[in-house]
Design a protein around this nucleic acid. Structure first.
Lengths: 201, 201
DNA sequence: GTCTATAAACAGATAGAC
DNA sequence: GTCTATCTGTTTATAGAC
């Protein structure tokens, strides 16, 4: 259930300052990710996190001052990744190039945060735990995928791909499929669903 | 559980049976649908339902004996629809025909239960509130879409379409798109994403 | 750093008044 | 039928012992 990870009596590479809270914080975060993915944010209590970790609730509260802080920290890596993708995409000259970058970036991100992707794209608690930043970048990303002045068909396609991919990577029924294969198939799907804005269609 | 349903004084012939509980029950159900869609099942409390309805919690408990009963009743129409689609599809001779029926049936169902679709396909509370029936039919439906001995690509495509469509129809950003147009685009998408098992691809 | 103990608010649910 | 009042358990969160 809980493994001291690496720190046993030995150095495991460089020095590693033993990180007074770093380790415990990481353990809490990892546990929270798993529970958020399984039960949703609203369906996960501090008690559940503490119990699965084999510690008391107070021990968790020592690391984080609130449930919201845990959720924020859990989502932070994904937020940073999306922000980076948007930055890169927006620097490009034309819409089609932006779309391509946003598309592949989104797929890569979904694979990297496989457990969390479903929380990011669809958890009902998202508007509450991510007041502005995350909602903003989500909107930006979708705009990049849609391109300028998208018609209904395009907007729907983007919505389907966005939510569909986020849920698919975390789908327990697809847990046996490894990251590499999933990545390839999703990229292919993204091209089938979210087309370039050239209306040769 | 217990519904005298129409019992008030007597005559309930034509003119509005006054439906002693029917109306209130329906109002609770409608309210619950909206809140489940907005906040998720775990994120919706009896208090929220009662407050939005302008009544007390006890008034809600008079109509339903538990939150689970509310959730079950809310999901019932969708369960019945899916069951019907599966029945029809399974009666067909070959896999391709089954897939086609399952596909169009699923789209139709998503449009009909636009608010609830996202709850059905992705709410973390689903495994709890729908012990066997709903999970079973969901699995059946996905099997019909996948066809016999599906490869990874096919399974992923089905997962993306299933969750993607369920979330898209309920997406607030797509609320301005009317049912008819959404229906058409989704049907088109379903053919682009979930292909027949003939591997002419 | 982690614990016990506890506060305060809120959840689901029931009893009984009107 | 709907309400007030209440019960019980759980939730988030804090204080202070070790």
């Amino acid at each position: 259930m809980f493994e001291p990870s690496i720190r046993r009596g030995e150095k495991c590479g460089v020095a590693k300052p033993v990180s007074p809270r770093g380790l415990a914080r990481t353990r809490v975060l990892d546990c929270a990710v798993a529970l958020f993915a399984e039960c949703g944010v609203h369906g996960t209590s501090l008690k559940m996190i503490a119990q699965r970790l084999g510690v008391s609730k107070a021990a968790v509260y020592y690391q984080f001052s609130s449930k919201e802080e845990i959720a924020t920290e859990v989502l932070r890596p994904i937020l940073e990744d999306v922000t980076r993708v948007i930055k890169i995409a927006e620097a490009l000259p034309d819409w089609e190039a932006r779309r391509a970058v946003a598309c592949s970036g989104l797929v890569e991100m979904a694979i990297r945060h496989r457990q969390l992707a479903a929380v990011f794209v669809g958890d009902p608690a998202m508007p509450l735990i991510a007041p502005m930043e995350l909602r903003a970048v989500t909107g930006e990303l979708r705009k990049l995928l849609e391109g300028p002045e998208p018609d209904a068909q395009h907007r729907i396609a983007v919505a389907v791909f966005f939510a569909g991919m986020g849920n698919a990577v975390a789908d327990p029924l697809l847990a046996d499929i490894d990251d590499a294969e999933l990545h390839g198939v999703l990229l292919d799907l993204s091209n089938r669903i979210v087309r370039p804005t050239t209306d040769g269609d």
